[in-house]
Computed example of a mutant assay.
Amino acid sequence: MLRDLFIGLSENQLLNRAARNYGLQLGAQQVVAGTNITEMMDSVKELNQAGIACTIDNLGEFVYDKSEAIRAKEQILAVVKAIHEQQADAHISLKPSQLGLDIDYEFCREQIKEIAEKASRDDIFVNLDMENYPRLEPTFRLVNELSEEGYTNIGTVIQAYFHRALKDTRAYRDMRMRLVKGAYKESPAVAYQKKQEIDENFIRIIEWHLLHGKFTSIATHDDRIIDHVKRFAAEHDIERDQFEFQMLYGFRKDLQLALAKEGYRFCTYVPFGEDWYGYFMRRLAERPQNMNLMVKQVFNKKTNTVIGLAAGAFLLGRLSKRGK
């Protein structure tokens, strides 16, 4: 119920626009690294100084206009330039939908190709994030076509809650891969619904990719998963330069630093921009424990009031639909 609530909130365009108008006044600055490139790069440099790499996400939701998609591309190109000029230990994460996937496939492909080309010249990796199930095949198609054109600086994401996750992990064994549990509401026909099943599949694809794949990024805040990976890597003599742990900016800072100090490669997912609301809600949906972290690290009374009102609006909307 709680997960459905936050996914529903993340997809509410009205609330997304309202949250954007507030900027980061509600406390989201604790988990979003500013609204512009300068603020974000300051955060990246601070993390780099602590021995932590970064993957940078220019936030954006509900892009259905080509001009907006082009602006997003230009912003990402500016991030690539900033990484190169400042010699930051960072790479790019991008969402195909922000670059026009829901508008026109070929248009989106050319947009991403331009980013991949610029990033390739600057020796910067580009990760194509996975979104919901309807965008799964088009995103894999983008990855395949760019790879066929010779771009070796691209990778993508496997979401453990999909039944097909292990098959896809095997298919992309030669590609740098981020492995995650998944953060969207999906049908039981295509995705596991129970936490235990998702966790078991997550461990399954992590182990397979560590043993057979290229570089593996393991994105989790789950202590049990992290401890399992440590033991598995040690037992199978997997070198630490073959994988990294990833966590979200602003979450479990002490653990991020501790893992880096232990000698594990670590990468923080650094989102920035004014369009932070959908990202924020999906992080709450993705793992209920994130709510506790939010309460401790982010929410002030004003934030709680706004989230409460948003939740109430969503539930009232659901109830009104049922009454029709």
Rank of each mutant, 00 (worst) to 15 (best):
G213E: 05
L248A: 07
L128P: 00
K230D: 11
Q246N: 02
A19Y: 13
V298G: 00
A116L: 05
T220A: 10
Y192K: 01
Y184T: 10
T216I: 05
K261E: 13
D89V: 13
T38M: 07
F162G: 07
L9P: 10
A116E: 09
A258Q: 12
P288C: 06
L94D: 02
K73F: 11
E117Y: 15
E39K: 07
I124E: 11
I205G: 04
A165T: 11
M175C: 03
L136D: 04
M130W: 11
Q49I: 13
M177A: 01
T156R: 11
F107W: 01
S147K: 15
S187T: 14
G278Q: 05
D42R: 10
R170D: 11
Q49E: 15
F107M: 04
L26Y: 02
G312L: 07
F62A: 03
V229T: 10
Q159Y: 12
C54N: 06
A53V: 01
K181G: 12
R178W: 04
F266G: 10
E200H: 05
L94P: 08
N58W: 11
I83V: 12
Q75K: 15
D222M: 04
L319S: 14
V180K: 05
A33V: 09
K194M: 06
L284C: 06
N48V: 12
A191E: 12
V63L: 03
R176Q: 11
L179Q: 02
K167I: 05
W208Y: 13
A33C: 12
E186R: 11
S43M: 12
K81F: 07
R176M: 01
P96A: 08
E46M: 12
I238V: 03
T139R: 04
N12E: 00
S120Q: 14
K118P: 09
D223K: 13
L248V: 11
V270P: 02
K95M: 07
I70E: 05
I307A: 02
I226L: 06
A119I: 07
Q75Y: 14
E137W: 08
L210S: 10
R176C: 00
E145D: 12
P96F: 03
A313T: 09
I83F: 07
I154V: 05
